[in-house]
Design a binder for these strands. Sequence first.
DNA 1: AAGCGTAGCAACCGCCCGTAT
DNA 2: CATACGGGCGGTTGCTACGCT
Length: 281
Amino acid sequence: MDVNGRGYNSGTQSEEEMDLRRGPWTMEEDIILVNYIANHGEGRWNSLARCAGLKRTGKSCRLRWLNYLRPDVRRGNITPEEQLLILELHSRWGNRWSKIAQHLPGRTDNEIKNYWRTRVQKHAKQLQCDVNSKKFKDTLRYLWIPRLAERIRAAAGSSGNNSNTHPDLTAGHQVTPQYGLGGGAQVMPNFTPENSSTVASSDSLPQVVSPVSDLTDYYLSVNSSDFQPAPYQFQESLPSPSGYFNYGLAEQSGFLDGDISENTWSMEDIWFLQNQLSNSI
DNA sequence: AAGCGTAGCAACCGCCCGTAT
DNA sequence: CATACGGGCGGTTGCTACGCT
């Protein structure tokens, strides 16, 4: 750990660093950090920690600020829109959490990373496959993402003006998300299937993307009025899953009962997916 | 009601890179 | 050019709350 020094010891501070605090932050520490940053700004975390009188490493202060104390940190459940974005962006960039987080205002890389590890990898485990395997990516493409898209569409249709709906995923209705303590409007780059590359280009996306990038392209059509239940929208160019995901099966298996990402898949689901996916490959 | 197992998440670790000196 | 330092990043750990038996 840095406490023990990776070049940060400067002799006079060695004794001070011996009693550096670790573990959970107390409210008092949080207040000190917030007040200090409010007065002096962030950056230079090691000296900040020292000057603020915090017995913490600079890194610890930085992490606490970025992941928890920052006014615009958004807390609470990951919405379906955000899930969809995460899946899409992860398919492009892999475990580049901070890069992915840049496109989810208020979400931290740590939060997204945790989401991926706990929710997404859990399903991969249930399917007994690797998250990077074709099998799992197909599952995402043909089952999970369509379901998410369907939920988003349904929510948008039922609520009309759903401020929680991601503007880029509901076909261009620019809705400014509101959250945090006046963190200000954070404008997401437009992220429609058609311009999804804009996100990339604005962020120097490599020209080569993974074979399953643009996952959402198949499910998020140009405008929401054209949006159809996703499972039926397989394009001819796709390695067709032969329509094996249909509502009947989905209902039977419980896929439509709620948030897929939060439900445990039944053994029938897993068995079914394993068979169908292995057949389709 | 109690014990146990597990999921979720905050925090830490260690490597790497960019920049200043 | 070499070195030290600050900061960012992805991976990992450990604690806690919750659900199940």
